[in-house]
């Protein structure tokens, strides 16, 4: 595994020498997207709580960071690095509040409530649009980096750091408790684990990374807009994580890269080349349905199983 990680990292590091700048730009965005996906996996894959409102925290992080570094709107001009952290912190604070209220209950309620959340937050953007800029969003003024190359490396670093942190968390005792909650809440409780507390903890962590990712998007493309709260983004996150394989971090990471690049690069080219009478979303949703039914464990588990089988023979 280690040498695969190393090779991937080296490949990512030399990418700028291989790829034209425009594709580098897409790769950078894909890294940020991957942070959203693996942080979703941290909650859904490891504690088994279906969070349908992950984009709430992506959007929150984005808007908090954007407002903190745009003096024209708020009179505040924080250093972008500080504002990115603040975006993550704000997201996790909201996550804490919502988690305390909703995670006491078991079953579907958490999924249902989180599904509504992004809609509520998106409405705030339209209603207080003097502040949030409404549908149009607004341009962010002082950003961390300006060239694509700088932005690319920065998002790579953020992805690697986030991934290592999350990996450490799931491999620790906390991670074991998350999985205990996932596998059987009753059993976990009988072992003396305060399940609500660990679910809330996971939610706060997942929200933090989502907030960071949102704030990164703002600093990457220099504008903020309400689609960061949107349902389509949420679906893309789910799609990538499920395709990759929940509860593995590696699977969702690969899923995120493949799906994002496919959607924003390859699929469009293919459809244009053959001038098919469909759009790329149709293809993506069809893949999702097929994967969901044929290998509900995700690609990662599927491949791993085959690998193990073939090694035994």
């Amino acid at each position: 595994m280690r040498w695969v990680n190393g090779a991937a990292l080296i490949l990512a590091a030399v990418m700028p020498f291989i790829l034209p700048e425009a594709y580098l730009y897409i790769f950078g965005l894909a890294y940020i997207f991957a942070v959203m996906v693996i942080s979703w996996d941290l909650m859904v894959g490891y504690t088994g709580q279906v969070n349908l409102g992950h984009t709430t925290f992506v959007g929150l992080g984005a808007y908090v960071a954007a407002l903190l570094q745009t003096p024209l709107r708020t009179g505040i001009a924080m250093h972008p690095a500080v504002s990115i952290i603040a975006g993550g912190a704000a997201a996790s604070a909201v996550g804490l509040a919502i988690g305390i209220i909703t995670l006491r209950l078991r079953g579907y309620y958490f999924a249902l409530v989180t599904a509504i959340l992004p809609l509520v937050f998106m409405q705030t953007v339209f209603i207080w649009r003097e502040l949030f800029g409404g549908e149009e969003g607004f341009a962010v003024e002082n950003t961390l980096f300006t060239t694509t190359l700088e932005k690319y490396y920065f998002s790579l670093v953020v992805l690697v750091v986030s991934f290592i942190l999350m990996k450490k968390i799931v491999d620790s005792r906390i991670g074991l408790r998350f999985m205990a909650v996932r596998d059987s809440e009753e059993l976990a409780e009988s072992l003396g684990i305060n399940t609500t507390r660990y679910k809330v903890l996971a939610f706060v962590l997942t929200s933090f990374f989502a907030g960071i990712a949102g704030a990164m998007v703002v600093n990457y493309r220099f504008t903020v807009s309400p689609e960061l709260y949107g349902v389509p983004l949420m679906l893309l996150i789910i799609l990538s994580a499920v395709l990759g394989g929940l509860g593995t971090l590696y699977g969702p990471l690969i899923g995120a890269m493949v799906i994002y690049l496919a959607k924003n690069w390859w699929l469009g080219d293919i459809i244009r080349t053959f001038s098919l009478p469909i759009n790329d979303e149709i293809v993506l949703y069809a893949i999702l349905i097929a994967v969901g039914i044929l290998m509900p464990e995700g690609l990662y588990h599927e491949i791993k199983e085959r690998w193990v089988k073939s090694n035994k023979q």
């Binding site: 034209p20 700048e21 730009y25 504008t223």
Partner: peptide
Amino acid sequence: DSNTATSEFRRLATVENADVIIGGFSSG
């Protein structure tokens, strides 16, 4: 979508070497 739009604009401008870009739609 702003992420997609900026990626695509950049692709047209730098990979396809478009001399001019036409279109847009939607203020954000």
